[in-house]
């Protein structure tokens, strides 16, 4: 036997030993975990998700690999994860889209087709107008809108999107007739700056820069409480319109995932959420890290789902395709 040959044999034996020992000895996780992001690269969901995955990698000791599966307002990701093997190696980075894409009828299941690990964060969806607009307060806007029903235009990211749902809910509460313009995420801010639309609803992370540069003015936010980045802005509830719609993000896994894996994922999620990288980023970007475990998250989702369903029904967009019905 030549020397090189012997070296090869040793190497092969060593590798085989490695491969053998891993699954036998260690518990979950023994291999990389796929972390599916329902939106495109560079989106706020993507940036926040990638940071979280990076920190979860540290906590789990296995790579948590972010994969973008965009499309269908989240429908592609949710279908893929719902049908994935329930072994804890496929995780969806969910958001309010898990309620909108299901209720708009893009997929034949509801948010309860998953096991949820928990919530990581939420962020408000403020209402903003151009900085030199004549409306100084939300009340000004409501009054003007009542004087001229069906004239003012409010930009949103797409019909049935969370920004649209927030806009419909707030405007209904204020008894305002407006034109909801689904201009898309890419052009939303531009249309307000150019005057093509009069106002918009957008996630705080996406509009805070413009507000800080005094290009737009945030008048209200339909959130639980005021946001520390915009302390002076009253919530819609304070103004007498009791609407609370926040954009949330969290983790979901296929139904039937073993409890042990879910427990570990939850612990890693909390550790990652409390990491310095994510905490620092949240302060800059304007989202609030506030973790919930499945016990809290499930009823929260049910409550939000009812809200979304109601608004979509009102907008005549609701379409459930549950096979059992």
């Amino acid at each position: 036997m030549s020397r090189t040959c012997r070296m090869w044999l040793i190497l092969v034996a060593f590798l085989a030993a490695c491969a053998w020992s891993a699954p036998a000895g260690a518990a979950y996780p023994t291999k990389p975990i796929e972390f599916i992001i329902p939106f495109g690269a560079g989106d706020s969901a993507d940036i926040e998700g990638r940071l979280l995955a990076q920190e979860m990698t540290k906590a789990l000791g296995q790579p948590v690999v972010p994969i973008n599966k965009e499309g269908g307002g989240g429908a592609i990701t949710y279908t893929l994860v719902k049908n994935a093997k329930p072994d804890g190696y496929t995780v969806a980075w969910n958001s309010t889209s898990i309620l909108t894409s299901t209720n708009i009828g893009n997929v034949p299941f509801d948010h309860d087709a998953f096991d949820h690990i928990g919530r990581v964060e939420y962020q408000p969806m403020p209402f903003a107008v151009k900085a030199d607009a004549k409306w100084k307060t939300f009340k000004d806007f409501v009054e003007d809108c009542k004087k001229r029903p069906g004239v003012l235009k409010i930009a949103n990211a797409g019909t049935g999107s969370t920004t649209h749902i927030a806009a419909v809910a707030v405007m209904n509460a204020a008894n305002c007739k407006v034109i909801h313009l689904p201009v898309g995420v890419k052009r939303r801010n531009a249309t307000v700056l150019s005057g093509e639309t009069d106002a918009m609803f957008g996630p705080l992370t996406g509009i805070i820069k413009l507000a800080q540069a005094k290009q737009i003015r945030i008048l209200t936010l339909p959130s639980q409480k005021r946001n520390q980045l915009i302390k002076d802005v009253p919530t819609a509830t304070e103004l007498g319109y009791p609407v609370v719609i926040d954009l949330f993000r969290g983790l979901s896994v296929p139904k039937g995932t073993p409890a042990e894996a879910k427990e570990k994922l939850y612990k890693a999620m909390v550790a990652a959420a409390n990491s310095k990288a994510l905490q620092d980023f949240s302060k800059k970007a304007g989202f609030t890290i506030d973790t919930m475990d499945a016990k809290e998250f499930d009823p929260y989702l049910d409550k939000m789902d009812k809200l979304v369903k109601g608004i979509l029904k009102e907008a005549k967009l609701y379409r459930s395709k549950k096979p059992t019905q």
Partner: peptide, 18 residues
């Protein structure tokens, strides 16, 4: 997916076509 409404068009129930 309809670019404005988010509903499915001509996908014949095939999720990949969304």
């Amino acid at each position: 997916q309809d670019p404005l409404m988010g509903t499915a068009r001509y996908t014949f129930g095939e999720v990949n076509l969304l």
